[in-house]
Simulated assay, not measured.
Amino acid sequence: MITKLTAEERKSTLAELPGWEPTVGRDALHKSFKFEDFNAAFGFMTRIAIKAQELNHHPEWFNVYNQVEITLSTHEASGLTQRDIELARFIEKVSAGATRS
């Protein structure tokens, strides 16, 4: 059974994931990234796609040229779970070279 994060888990998790913000109107996290160019943004997305496939947990995202917006939520739980946190931590590791947009 997949369970949502508790209020305390949310608070401590957000403290360790700088720039990730709650999504207005739903139980999700969101962050925007900006890269030098399209190639860097697409490479970033490719690394995430490989990890997401391994985890069988896929992000919602949007890309235009050098910008990538990512929203994480677990649809089966209708909200945030440890799956989202694991993927967010990975995203943070591979986001070197990105700036907050």
Rank of each mutant, 00 (worst) to 15 (best):
T74D: 04
F33C: 10
T3S: 09
R10V: 05
I85F: 06
A28N: 04
A98R: 03
W61K: 06
L72N: 14
Q82T: 03
A98E: 14
H58C: 08
L5S: 06
E16W: 02
R100H: 10
H58D: 12
E86L: 01
F90L: 00
G43D: 15
T81Q: 04
Y65D: 10
T23Q: 05
V24D: 10
E76P: 01
P59Y: 04
E76N: 09
W20S: 00
F44W: 12
L14G: 00
R83S: 12
E21F: 01
S95H: 05
D27Q: 12
N39W: 10
S101L: 14
H75C: 04
F90R: 01
T46Q: 13
R100L: 11
P18M: 04
D27F: 03
F90A: 00
N39K: 15
I48R: 11
R10H: 06
E16D: 15
M1C: 11
E16S: 14
T99G: 13
V24R: 11
K51Q: 12
K93F: 07
Q53N: 08
N56M: 11
L55S: 09
G25N: 08
Q67F: 10
L55P: 01
K4N: 15
F62K: 07
V64D: 09
A28F: 03
N56H: 14
H57W: 06
F33S: 10
E9K: 02
F42Y: 09
K93T: 14
V68M: 04
E76S: 14
G97P: 07
R100W: 08
L14V: 01
A96H: 15
R26Q: 09
V24S: 11
Q53P: 01
M1P: 13
A7D: 10
E9R: 00
E21C: 02
G43T: 12
M1T: 14
A88G: 03
R10N: 11
R83D: 15
L14H: 01
P59Q: 06
R83N: 15
T71A: 04
E69P: 00
Q53Y: 03
